[in-house]
């Protein structure tokens, strides 16, 4: 179910300290989300591409993923050019497309894809267990991290359980259609998945207690900040400054969209 094919890499991002990566992605993503100008958003997209380069991921797969995820953006393109007030450039029937609307849609598309490229590069180079440990040392609540790690551990198990039940239904000639029978079947099936997960959760906890679990996972891996991590942090800081700077050059207060 979950693609983890990219984890085995030796790129710059794969080798970087996960704590440094978390912090850098956090600040960069918010900086890009803040931008109001197309020029700045283009610079943001460049940063996203840099990340992609840093993680050395196969471009064809990334493009495929981006196309799927841009569905929401496509949905906005249907409406935004016609709903923003401004200078009309063309009209279909009674709908007037405005320059402002098209600019806004372009801006959103750029920002969205810039951040997505960063998320893909980050997620592809950081396995979730490692991320959990990094977040622990960044002082996030222990319970939240346990939730993250344990639910990650059981995702594929429960997905298999669901598939087994679905297979059993299919063997009995279940075909999904638009009727109450389908909805009832799915509801029973999912309720069964919930019950099994609940039972499994109890057994898992008992097994953990039996092995001396006291509320935290111990980390055997020692994270160390190296020169390249400082470089990453420095680069990120610089990028954030440049992005916000570009965004504010010539900006008239009050005009940026959304402000």
């Amino acid at each position: 179910m979950l693609e983890e094919t990219f984890y085995q890499g030796s790129s710059f991002l794969h080798r970087a300290d996960p704590r440094a990566k978390v912090i850098c992605v956090f600040f960069l993503a918010f900086a890009i989300a803040y931008l109001h100008k197309i020029s700045a958003a283009m610079a943001g997209l460049l940063v996203g591409l840099l990340f992609l380069y840093g993680a050395k991921l196969p471009p064809s797969k990334i493009i495929k993923r981006l196309i799927v995820v841009n569905a929401f953006i496509g949905f906005l393109w249907l409406f935004l050019p016609f709903s923003a007030p401004g200078k009309v450039i063309f009209s279909i029937w009674k709908l007037n497309a405005t320059v402002e609307g098209i600019e806004m849609a372009t801006l959103i598309t750029l920002k969205c894809n810039a951040i997505l490229l960063m998320i893909i590069s980050f997620a592809a180079s950081t396995p979730v267990p490692v991320l959990g440990l990094a977040l622990t040392s960044l002082r996030l609540p222990q319970k939240l991290i346990l939730l993250l790690l344990i639910s990650y551990r059981y995702l594929s198990v429960i997905f298999q359980e669901y598939n087994r039940l679905l297979q059993a239904a299919r063997i009995r000639c279940f075909v999904a259609k638009n009727n109450m029978h389908t909805y009832r079947t799915y509801a029973y099936l999912l309720a069964m998945v919930l019950i099994r997960s609940y039972e499994r959760g109890r057994r898992v906890y008992q097994a953990m207690l039996l092995r001396g679990f006291n509320g935290r996972f111990y980390c055997l891996q020692d994270f160390q900040l190296r020169k390249q991590d400082l470089l990453l942090a420095l680069g990120t800081g610089l990028c954030v400054l440049i992005l916000i700077g570009t965004d504010h050059i010539g900006a008239i207060p009050g005009v940026p969209w959304g402000a």
Partner: peptide
């Protein structure tokens, strides 16, 4: 409750 909630989250 943490493990129980975690497995339910996965579900």
């Amino acid at each position: 409750e943490v493990p129980k909630v975690a497995v339910l989250t996965a579900a």
